[in-house]
Design a protein around this nucleic acid. Structure first.
Length: 597
RNA sequence: GGGGGCGUAGCUCAGUUGGUUAGAGCGCUGCCCUGUCACGGCAGAGGCCGCGGGUUCGAGUCCCGUCGCUCCCGCCA
């Protein structure tokens, strides 16, 4: 017989009754009745009830066992007595009557139990991650993650993509997030950087003629964490394709993403064909470039109803060209309690308040101070435009859309949540397209890249090269071949058709106010590659952690990462980051200059 | 860097308008228990009420500061 086990803890069935078996695992739960004693023995594969009584020579030893001890047992499989079967367990028809116990590893008092599903503080969970990982939910999440990645790999390879590895120690990239730096011993005073994404490498792989690249790529960014943003490191399905249009990228990626959501979505409905929503439309309808389409609330511009109206605050705001009033409809929110709740929420968000009109029985003309101010005709105009009636409400935000759009988006989400309008049984996916190429930098009073400098402008190259760098209105209207995938309000990925032409790149940098020397300094390697025969190419990089988070139904990335860091980018289990020895620093020619407390 | 929430036993939490000796469940220790699967019963150990200061006859409770955790904003091409 094998040293540790003849079967796993999930394997035994009625067909095994009578067999002498050997099992190893953790003591999940021990129920000691004095005369008879049960041990739920657990391993990766399942749970088997092990039973012991005073007739067994292992009884004395069994009484000494405690939770999470690792043991090996020998015993005989037998049918459970009539009426004591456990239908909740695959092994619930049988039990193993133990004849011998070997303690492989004892355990002290646990800082948190493995048994049960009580919540525990992050700090303890992270410090004792290996215990947390023994628990069913996290164990399943991590296994789900592995299966999702397997599936993605298979789908990508079936789609003609080939997997590559790119360097982890590379050069600092000047744009974007803060880099993690690694000092060079051989070159005192110089540093490597961990890649924020293999962006330039994957483009160079295209220049090298490999045609279709993908990688489950680790990405490192030294930025502050969020629930859906791991500090330090995360993984992307990074991919790039040559000789493609934007539509070709969509056609390659959409089936992979949809397929994964369908395969692991446990019956939740997945968008059959991702709609393409222009950035501007997403902002005006949903107040966000990552709209949750499960929320049916759609905003509209209702400026005409307030222009020169009796509601002086809005009327005055609308005197400034470019200003607007947007309406956020709330079907079923037609009562004062709800409207007041929204209003005080808005004040908590730092807003002066949230104007509203609501309609209820007996006041079909609309209730609330705004309705009185603008009169029945304009109120009806709004009701008609928004398709609202008795039992409904509508909220208003006014001013410069650029300034209020973010708050409007939050209010839309809030309305959807408060009125339980957000469908829970769906994955609603879409493409956000036509991102602006440039944006106005108010602080520096200049034109800037709005995303990354590598996207191709969505206009004929000849026209782009002829652009007047001082024609701000025209420049700010230019769209880029830049796109996102959004699922249930979570930004899953971002991609672009790349700018592979040195002349276009030089022009784009000139428009953003950078002299050619800057381009040369920062992206010289890639620029020179493009001067030696570069195919048109483009790609995208869906976030693996976020996909798994959505599929696992979790609200936090830490629930789908094996060994995550806390919000402050500390690994509480391994104790990272940590101080290093003076010798190590000296070798690296580094002297510390720590901030005073 | 800023804002919100939380901080009481190893863990999850309760703790009245400030008022005797700070409680419960889980876990832990001991004893009892032969069919449980959240086993049950009895007894026990375990507390700088995050830390510092203040108000008060009296502070877990009120005030100020500080630290830690967490969520958010900034940041994230």
């Amino acid at each position: 017989m094998h040293r540790y086990r003849s079967h796993t803890c999930g394997a035994l069935r009625e067909t095994d009754i009578g067999k002498d078996v050997r099992l190893s695992g953790w003591c999940h739960r021990i129920r000691d009745h004095g005369g008879v004693l049960f041990i739920d023995l657990r391993d990766h594969y399942g749970l088997t009830q092990v039973v012991c009584d005073p007739d067994s020579k292992a009884f004395k030893q069994a009484e000494q066992l405690r939770s999470e001890w690792v043991i090996r047992i020998d015993g005989k499989v037998r049918k459970r007595p009539e009426g004591t079967e456990n239908a909740d367990l695959p092994t619930g028809q049988i039990e193993v009557y133990v004849s011998e116990i070997e303690v492989l590893s004892a355990a002290g008092e646990l800082p948190m139990p493995v048994f049960g599903d009580q919540e525990y503080p992050e700090e303890i969970r992270l410090k004792y991650r290996f215990l947390d990982l023994r628990r069913e939910k996290l164990h399943n999440n991590i296994m789900l993650r592995g299966r999702v990645i397997d599936s993605i790999r298979k789908r990508m390879k079936d789609g003609g993509f080939f997997e590559f590895q790119t360097p982890i120690l590379t050069a600092s990239s000047p744009e974007g997030a803060r880099d993690y730096l690694v000092p060079s011993r051989i070159h005192p005073g110089k540093f490597y950087a961990l890649p924020q994404a293999p962006q330039q490498f994957k483009q160079l792989i295209m220049v090298a003629g490999f045609d279709r690249y993908f990688q489950i790529a680790p990405c490192f960014r030294d930025e502050d964490a969020r629930a859906d943003r791991s500090p330090g490191e995360f993984y992307q399905l990074d991919l790039e394709m040559s000789f493609v249009t934007q539509q070709d990228v969509f056609d390659a990626v959409e089936p992979v993403i949809r397929g994964v959501f369908e395969e692991f979505g446990e019956g939740k409905k997945v968008t059959p064909k991702f709609p393409m929503i222009p950035y501007a439309e997403a902002m005006s309808k949903y107040g966000s470039d990552k709209p949750d389409l499960r929320n049916p609330v759609v905003m509209q511009d209702v400026s005409p109803a307030f222009k020169e109206s009796g509601f002086k605050i809005f009327a005055r705001i609308l005197e400034t060209p470019g200003n607007a009033v947007w309406a956020i409809p709330a079907k079923g929110g037609g009562n004062r309690a709800f409207c007041d709740r929204m209003n005080s929420w808005a004040q908590g968000e730092g807003q002066p308040g949230l104007g509203y009109i609501f309609w209820r029985e007996g006041e079909e003309g609309g209730a609330g101070p705004l309705a009185k101010n603008i009169g029945p005709e304009r109120t009806k105009q709004i009701a008609d435009q928004m398709g609202l009636g008795v039992g409904d409400a509508v909220f208003f935000v006014a001013g410069k859309p650029k300034d209020f759009v973010k708050f409007a988006g939050l209010a839309r989400t809030r309305v959807g949540e408060e009125l339980n309008m957000i469908a829970q049984d769906r994955f609603d996916l879409c493409w956000i397209v036509d991102f602006p190429m440039f944006e106005w930098n108010e602080e520096e009073k200049k034109i800037d890249f709005s995303h990354n400098p590598f996207s191709m402008p969505n206009m004929p190259v000849e026209d782009f090269l002829k652009l007047d760098p001082s024609d701000n209105d025209k420049l700010l209207a230019i769209k880029a071949f830049q796109y996102d995938i959004v699922c249930n309000g979570v930004e899953l990925s971002s991609g672009a058709i790349r700018n592979h032409r040195p002349d276009v790149m030089k022009k784009a940098f000139a428009i953003a106010g950078y002299p050619e020397t800057v381009l040369e300094e920062k992206f010289g390697g890639m620029l020179h590659a493009f001067e030696l025969g570069a195919p048109p190419h483009g790609g995208i990089a869906p976030g693996i952690d976020r996909i798994v988070m959505l599929l696992a139904g979790e609200q936090n990335l830490r629930e789908v990462v094996l060994f995550p860091m806390n919000q402050k980018a500390e690994d509480l289990m391994m104790g990272a980051p940590a101080e290093v020895t003076p010798k190590q620093l000296k070798e690296l020619s580094i002297r510390l200059d720590l901030p005073k407390k």
